[in-house]
Design a protein around this nucleic acid. Sequence first.
DNA 1: AAGCCGGGGCC
DNA 2: GGCCCAGGCTT
Length: 354
Amino acid sequence: MKQSSIFARQLLKWFDVHGRKNLPWQQDRSAYRVWLSEVMLQQTQVATVIPYFERFVKHFPTVWDLASATTDEVMRHWAGLGYYARARNLHACARQVCQQYVGEFPDSVELLQQLPGIGRSTAGAIVAQAFHRRAVILDGNVKRVLARYRAISGWPGKVAVQRSLWALADSFTPTERVADYTQAIMDLGATVCRRSRPLCDQCPLRTDCYAAARGVVEHFPEKKQRSSLPVRETCVLMCYQAEKPQHIMLEKRPPTGIWGGLWSLPQCEPVQVPEDVIASKYGYQVRAIEEAEPVMHSFTHFHMRIRPLRIQLSGAASTVAESSVSWCNAVKANAYGMPSPIQALVSQFFETLD
DNA sequence: AAGCCGGGGCC
DNA sequence: GGCCCAGGCTT
């Protein structure tokens, strides 16, 4: 038997036992309901979509109801789902279907794809699930299943990788039970062939899966390669008082996040006004600010451009009491656990003292 | 080809 | 707090 038919056969056998068959849009199937669910499910998880779908079909039972609604009314029912261009396209699509097709969705991928908000994969899903005609889908779940099954390397956003995945998807799509098949491969991707912690011991395709055979399932699909890491900018405040210039203000960072629990210099966003930050957060007035040369520091996922501001304070702290603040001098500096770039800046600060 | 849209789940 | 998600559209 051909490999391509083994794939569908094993998948459908699994679907008959473990597949999802009680989703709202699987009941009372019509092109309208399938289309609506597919658009809502673009980049949105099933559990999030369900209540929106039910409210939507209650208020707009047919494509005619949706087409004749106002934009505000449609947007109101979409509010909270995100990607609001989907709602605008949905409304435009409903109107076009009523005007151009007398309220009947066309049953071919080519015609469906010409409608707003319907791309290749959504068109395929509608054809397979609403019209029970053979059509190919390739959404995030299918991409993951296929990339692992055949160990397809490269990031799926690349055109060459997309072409390979579409070709694979096409070759595995059967001519019988296409509605169940498309649901099955999505269910497998969502529940077994998950992005993280896949349940390979429950997978019906395991014996023929290249990635599983090599023990590298979680290496697929590959992530987008970051050619240049993003650069974030922050200002560090090197605060000292004229009366005791040998001390610098340190602040203990929150226990979680970047540099969690370490001592560091107070920070602010480049868009903030340091004078305001110091007054409101630490209760000091500023006498003078001098900006030093920026320092670069690299993390795994981004670069940080640190702009040191040497700030002379005037007067004592007013009402604001910061328990997480400490005044550090050159002798005590070693006793503070500081991130290396901050450590370097603090040492540099003490070296430049008279 | 790459950026954008967005709220929510998950780690 | 980052990454990803039943993608499609724009530049």
